[in-house]
Design a protein around this nucleic acid. Structure first.
Length: 615
RNA sequence: GGGGCCGUAGCUCAGCUUGGUUAGAGCACUCGACUGUCACUCGAGAGGUCGCGGGUUCGAGCCCCGUCGGCCCCGCCA
């Protein structure tokens, strides 16, 4: 281990380096110890005397001369150490540099001879001829490599998270986080220009109305009481509207204590927006503008407006509230073809008020028996009893169910040459999820998904309520969502038929964000809460502050929230949220780098009035 | 809560199917050679509780059970 015994800036200022006099482009990254970033040097810098600081990415020691690739945030540049321009002593030291050592160096930018250029490097036209260098940050052999060999896989994710400081040195992650930064800046600029105020809301908060489990923080000064971390700033932003701020936004951290997925982290970031005196149209156009600005950051153009589909229609056509409409494959109702047949399966379902629905897959007749069995497996996993398969063969319609169908029914089904018809019988809550999975799987199998297409759409007219398994009503969006004014008369008689002024924005089957117009009438809010099983006393206890605020002069208001991490993931082309978050958690919600969560000393527990119990 | 995959040198992996002496390779690391490389090349060397615990067996990296950790999925996530 080399002991340098440096104070942080010792040796970084070197009075012997002459002032830079070149006409080469100046860098906005210039500091007292550095004139440019390594990765920003180009042919236009040739002749410039430069001072660089960065990491040793790779070295090539040829004996008499040494090359190294110096890396910083902007990229790589080749530094050459050669007796023609490097003192023997420095050349000797350069040959011994270990990977990931931090050095500062001075030298001159030189054009490479034509045959020595490297077209694969952005800086490949030039190199920096080093006259001297200094180790300012010695490095142990890295636990995981930063520079990988061609074809070498990434280290295990566990190691990447444990040594996150090293993993974050990789270009891919630097690029992702830089893009994320740009998206944040664009968001702020876009919303600021439209009069939206960025206002922070508490992290130490109150338990959420319902839904996900809260992360909880014990109070030291209030024995036995707890804060909850916000699942979203929902109530705060409504209070801000009631206070008259009119337009609010926040790039807000949210917390939900639920089991994780590749696209789900326990703490995540939302672009949270709320405005007063608006209708859904206002949110649609704002969103379309904001998303266009964000996609532009990634160099992509998107449609100026998005198609709008009603919830009831997307469920009927696609079986899911966030359909991937890059490919057609729409569901249809085949019930009539099976009505009055001898087919027991469909008869039972039809008699019980269910339907036979499915899709016609162009080219699907080519799928093998084995593939069809796999598809049926997917449908069954999603809850279907089975999958009815029909295709047209030389002798007419083929498939186990074909013999039950009348001539006219066959006509009506109109299955074309080469088409495969896949049907599921059952009530909506069975056919929808099953056919959604089947539709997606078949599209994948037959390569029907256009890779570069971006299919944005709005889903509107969500129902206000859904039914829990025990039959009680629950909010589809959240309890503060306004019912559709045309449906208010149904609140008591047929609450599940009440539409909400709620909307989601969907891209390629991914929910990017969602929102609603909120209730601003306290009596209507009380009514909705009571339908949700929250009585007057309970409502006052949990949401009294909101109900009181609504009674104090509340403007009509509404908003939307976007999953910012997911936006960043999509735009970065990443497949995991962890690749667009600097310090993500594992699927068990653990932070491997700093080892959180961890035990705390007994005296701290006592201060918090807490005791741990064995289980 | 449930299912699946993975865990062998600092890293990426082979070895496991069919149990059998000193567990291999590439990269990284150490030493040596090399004056235009760019995944430099060449030679030598060091480096292993085979995640952990238990079991079966004359014998376990390999088979069985449990456990820990990571990833993916279902449930869950208004």
């Amino acid at each position: 281990m080399q002991l340098l015994n440096l104070t942080p800036l010792d040796g970084l200022f070197d009075p012997h380096i002459p002032a830079l006099t070149s006409t080469a482009p100046k860098s906005r990254f210039a500091t007292a110890t550095r004139s440019h970033l390594a990765g920003e040097l180009r042919a236009s810098h040739v002749g410039a005397k430069v001072k660089l600081g960065g990491w040793v990415h790779r070295t090539r020691n040829l004996g008499g001369i040494v090359f190294l690739d110096l890396r910083d945030r902007a990229g790589l540049v080749q530094v050459s150490f050669d007796p023609k321009w490097t003192p023997a002593e420095a050349l000797e030291r350069a040959g011994k540099l270990g990977l990931e050592t931090v050095i500062t160096l001075e030298g001159e930018v030189a054009a490479r001879p034509p045959e020595m250029r490297n077209a694969e490097m952005e800086t490949g036209e030039i190199e920096v001829r080093a006259s001297d260098f200094r180790i300012v940050g010695p490095a142990n052999t890295p636990a995981i490599p930063v520079a990988r060999g061609r074809g070498e896989k990434l280290p295990a994710e566990e190691l990447r998270l444990k040594h996150r400081n090293l993993d974050l040195r990789r270009f891919e992650l630097q690029k992702n986080l830089i893009l994320r930064h740009q998206l944040q800046q664009t968001t702020r600029k876009f919303l600021d220009e439209r009069g939206y105020l960025e206002i922070e809301t508490p992290i130490l908060s109150k338990p959420a109305p319902s839904g996900a489990r809260d992360y909880v923080v014990p109070s030291r000064v209030h024995p036995g009481e707890f804060y909850a971390l916000p699942q979203s700033p929902q109530v705060y932003k409504q209070l801000l509207m009631i206070s008259g701020f009119d337009r609010y936004f926040q790039i807000a951290r949210c917390f939900r204590d639920e089991d994780l997925r590749a696209d789900r982290q326990p703490e995540f970031t939302q672009i949270d927006i709320e405005a007063s005196f608006i209708v859904p149209e206002d949110i649609y156009s704002l969103t379309e503008g904001l998303l266009a600005a964000l996609w532009k950051d990634a160099g992509l153009e998107i449609p100026p407006t998005f198609e709008r589909l009603r919830y009831a229609d997307v469920m009927e056509r696609f079986g899911i509230d966030r359909p991937d409409t890059r490919y057609a494959l729409e569901l249809f109702d085949a019930s009539e073809a099976f009505r009055g047949t001898e087919f027991v399966v469909t008869n039972t379902v039809l008699a019980a008020g269910g339907r036979v629905r499915g899709l016609k897959v162009p080219g699907g007749a080519a799928l093998s028996r084995k593939q069809l069995d796999e598809i049926e497996g997917i449908a069954k996993l999603a809850g279907a009893g089975g999958l009815i398969r029909l295709k047209r063969g030389a002798a007419g319609l083929e498939g186990p169910a074909a013999k039950f169908l009348s001539e006219s029914a066959v006509q009506r089904l109109a299955i074309g040459e080469g088409e495969l018809c896949l049907l599921v019988a059952g009530p909506e809550h069975v056919t929808n999820p099953a056919l959604d999975r089947v539709r997606q799987d078949v599209a994948q199998r037959l390569s029907l998904v256009p890779e570069n297409k971006r299919s944005f759409l709005w889903v509107t007219d969500f129902p206000l309520f859904g039914r829990e398994q025990d039959g009680t009503l629950s909010s589809v969006h959240h309890p503060f969502t306004s019912p559709h004014p045309d449906d208010l008369h149904l609140l008591d008689s047929a609450p599940e038929k009440v539409r909400a002024l709620a909307y989601d924005v969907v891209l390629n089957g991914l929910e990017l964000g969602g929102g609603s117009i909120r209730i601003n009438d306290p009596s209507l809010q009380r009514k909705v809460l009571s339908l949700l099983g929250i009585g007057a006393d309970d409502a006052q206890l949990r949401f009294g502050f909101l109900l009181d605020a609504l009674s104090a002069g509340a403007p009509p208001h509404g908003g939307i929230a976007f999953g910012f991490d997911r936006l960043a993931m999509v735009l970065a082309g990443a497949t995991s949220l962890r690749d667009v978050i600097a310090f993500p958690k594992t699927t068990a919600a653990a932070a491997l780098f700093e080892d959180a969560p961890s035990a705390i000393p007994p005296e701290d527990l006592r201060d918090l009035h807490l005791q741990t119990i064995a289980n």
